[in-house]
């Protein structure tokens, strides 16, 4: 066992990593079996501490809100639909990486926090957009979107503004445009600077979504997503 990795895993479980270290480690966990095992071992070592916490009954309105949230969105989480676009090879690949990601969430629910989308949170979206604009808050289920994506049909461009996207060490983040029934299309590697891109031809903004996967430096060599999907979000008409 790598000693640094083990102590980072320990601090991840303990909660003492700062926001950016925590985000990077959560992203690393997605595809790193050694890190997953280290986290699982630490969760098990420290689990006994929880027994010392005296229970406190929450107020009734918490359950009422949970019931309302379940009723309003039905049984299926909305975010997963993003990936289930079509039956093409590339989509299957993206789905497989989602499955890998899901498998990893067994180890740590922080990963579930990364994957589950739009759970009870609303985002503050840019105001005063024209009718021909669509926006997506590309998100990892937390409080802050990782990217804001705006599709402007007038100028035929997509504007990508990174807000809090965290790139794992030695990797690149690649943005994918997923239009209904079509293979995910790479929109390129994203960094910390805002981007402006042409809208891919033959795509519809309705029912389109964006996903961000972790790829080798410079992006997926094959043109299809290979790494885990760590952020995703659906376009909303403004």
């Amino acid at each position: 066992m790598n000693g640094d990795l083990d102590l980072e895993a320990a601090e991840f479980v303990l909660g003492t990593l700062d926001a950016s270290e925590r985000g990077s480690f959560a992203a690393r966990l997605a595809g790193d079996k050694e890190a997953q095992a280290a986290v699982a071992a630490w969760e098990s070592r420290l689990a006994g501490l929880a027994d010392d916490i005296a229970p406190l009954t929450p107020p009734d309105h918490v359950w009422a809100r949970i019931e309302r949230a379940l009723a309003s969105r039905g049984a299926e989480p909305h975010g997963f639909r993003v990936i289930d676009g079509g039956a093409s090879d590339a989509t299957r690949k993206l789905r497989r990486s989602l499955a890998r990601w899901r498998a990893a969430t067994v180890v740590s629910s922080a990963l579930a926090a990364v994957l589950l989308l739009f759970v009870g949170y609303r985002f503050v979206l840019p105001t005063a957009l024209e009718e021909t604009s669509y926006v997506a808050a590309v998100n990892r289920g937390g409080d802050q979107p990782a990217l804001l994506v705006r599709v402007d049909l007038k100028s035929h461009r997509i504007f990508v503004r990174p807000v809090a996207a965290e790139t794992p060490k030695g990797k690149s983040l690649e943005l994918w445009y997923i239009s209904d029934g079509k293979p995910p299309r790479s929109m390129g590697v994203i960094g910390s600077a805002p981007l402006s891109l042409p809208i891919p031809s033959g795509t519809h903004a309705d029912a389109a979504a964006f996903a961000v996967s972790v790829e080798p430096p410079g992006g997926s060599p094959s043109g299809v997503a290979t790494g885990p999907v760590i952020y995703s979000g659906q376009l909303i008409k403004e």
Binding site: V62, I66, P77, S109, A112, L116, V119, G120
Partner: peptide, 10 residues
């Protein structure tokens, strides 16, 4: 509330 929605989903 969020934790229980996650428990429901996961």
């Amino acid at each position: 509330q969020d934790v229980f929605l996650r428990i429901w989903q996961n």
